[in-house]
Nucleic acid binder design. Structure first.
Lengths: 185, 185
DNA sequence: TCCTCTTGTTTGGGTACCCAAACGGGTTGA
DNA sequence: TCAACCCGTTTGGGTACCCAAACAAGAGGA
């Protein structure tokens, strides 16, 4: 598998944030201009101007006669998809893994545009089923406690600690067995 | 929160793969040279030569008198961490979310270097607890079935479909409630 | 010895981002 | 009317990657 698949995504990290920024500005204030996007993303107007030129050529962003920005159908679809992925991952990291909200937000932001649609779909189904099935609050509490124990013991300081690496090795060897079984078929 | 945190990671996607490639080559064949790394990553020797110059300056990669590459302690720690994260995420995507192995591998590869150590730690704990707790095979089967239903219904074609977006909206509004509660305190 | 192969490096070109700075067009208050 | 200001765009510079191509150095085989 080519490890460089990462940069042949539908949209880059930068593009993802430009699109979602426009979408959010439209929701919040009814319009979006280059300056608004620049302010929201914390970069210069010049950078946004250039980036949007590309997105306009790709047909994701449109502009009316008053320099007001909008999203094409495809642009909307992409922006919605990214937003959905962010929400799903943030919720999973926070509620299932027990991570603090700010860290969950940051990690979700980093990966939102990278994961495939099918992965997001599967995560949604997974979260949905867990929520129905059990008293998730006590579940989450247990996870938070386990995590805090781990932090207290200082394992995270030198990642990966011994315990986590044992788990990782076990997972790896079990998946190797599986692929061996597959070869035997 | 600054959305550009993504590029101020300990190592870039490229660097991550250079380091893990060296580590794996050392395991597999006992040595690693520029050409070996280039072959493994599918890029030219020239690119690897330049990239490794930077990693050597950062003290992550070392070189003996015979042009044989190695990892410093810090380099080893980073490579091990990335590898561990890849294994954890791949296992989660495949076994808990029921994704096909190749997709799980691809998505894990994309995010392995981005997630924080604490997130990986939490995921390890999470996986570990689930494995002990329940008959995970039937769990996984259920998840796979649910996912296949979803695919059959063609929801993934136009991501995000209605159902998944409903879940996402619910998650979002519940987390907004939470932060409102926090403000009231 | 000489030819050939492999190896590692350097160089010039390309892409995708970012910034700072300058410029031209509007709007607005004095 | 005109200076002050905000807008969007363009331009030159910087970083981090990639490639292709040219080079020098070493290792062998004929």
């Amino acid at each position: 598998m080519d490890w460089r698949e990462f940069d042949q995504n539908p949209v880059s990290h930068s593009a993802a944030h430009h699109l979602t920024a426009i979408q959010q500005l439209l929701e919040d204030q009814g319009y979006a201009r280059v300056s608004d996007v620049a302010r929201k993303l914390g970069i210069t107007r010049g950078s946004v101007s250039v980036s949007l030129k590309g997105l306009r050529q790709r047909g994701l962003v449109v502009e009316d006669q008053h320099k007001h920005l909008g999203l094409s159908d495809e642009g909307q679809r992409i922006a919605r998809g990214i937003h959905t992925k962010r929400v799903l991952f943030q919720a999973f990291l926070e509620k299932s893994l027990g991570l603090p909200a700010d860290l969950a937000e940051m990690d979700a932001c980093k990966i939102e545009h990278l994961v495939s649609d099918l992965t997001a779909e599967a995560l949604a189904i997974y979260i949905d089923r867990r929520e129905d099935a059990s008293d998730s609050s006590s579940d989450r509490e247990q996870q938070v406690n386990a995590l805090e124990d781990s932090i207290r013991e200082g394992r995270v300081e030198a990642f990966p600690g011994k315990e986590i690496e044992t788990i990782s090795e076990r997972l790896q060897s079990s998946s190797e067995e599986q692929s061996k079984d597959k070869d035997d078929e």
